[in-house]
């Protein structure tokens, strides 16, 4: 799958043109309020936007919104759980690869409010991939995690990306992490998305 943003128009940003190849991970950094989250929300077609987005040549506007969002899955910085336990948010809770993210299956049964932020964040990643989306848009996916669990999430995303040839867009403030997970790097500066040559420098 290839994700292509063609003159994507987002409020406050210059038109964005960007291709993410199958199995490629692209990082986007930028100060708070620079529009990183707005950009991802537009790619997931959650906000009105100009231009066009293509998934393997299929235009976003040519398919219903929910279909697009099932294929182009956004993990927001703050995830929401609307039922009492995590289990109720999953179609097939028994088949979840909880071990890959060092999660005890018992956490599925506990009230979501009693789980740690880190547990919720890892569960959110499992919830994100349960319908096997073609593209992952990750907004600070490891913000609440310790080093060991951050490494597990990075490995999990990498495995998913390779197995499904899925383009990944990864937003983070952690430059070292972006160097580890992504092969191409961009920064949002003054409303423009600009490529960073090689390593995103400090």
């Amino acid at each position: 799958m290839q994700l292509r943003l063609n003159d994507l128009g987002v409020a406050g940003l210059a038109a964005v043109t960007l291709s993410v190849e199958p199995g490629e991970c692209v990082s986007i950094e930028g100060p708070s309020g620079s529009g990183k989250t707005s950009l991802l929300r537009a790619v997931a077609d959650l906000d009105p936007h100009g231009g066009e987005i293509y998934l393997n040549g299929d235009a976003c506007s040519a398919m219903p919104g929910p279909d697009w969002r099932r294929r182009v899955a956004l993990l927001p910085a703050e995830v929401v759980w609307w039922r009492d336990t995590a289990r109720e948010h999953f179609k097939d809770p028994a088949a979840l690869p909880t071990a890959a993210l060092q999660l005890d299956a018992a956490v599925l049964e506990q009230p979501v409010g009693e789980l740690s932020t880190g547990q919720r964040q890892r569960l959110a990643l499992l919830r994100l991939v349960q319908h096997e989306p073609a593209v992952l848009l990750l907004d600070e996916p490891t913000a609440a995690l310790d080093e060991a669990n951050t490494a597990r999430v990075e490995a999990f995303v990498q495995a998913y990306r390779e197995q499904h040839a899925a383009p990944v867009v990864w937003i983070s403030h952690d430059r070292e992490q972006l160097c580890r997970v992504a092969s191409r790097h961009y920064a949002l500066n003054d409303g423009a998305l600009e490529p960073l040559s090689g390593r995103p420098g400090p």
Partner: peptide, 14 residues
Amino acid sequence: RTREIEQRLMLGES
């Protein structure tokens, strides 16, 4: 519950 609705939309719900 705006965020809950948006979260469900993000997961592809109608």
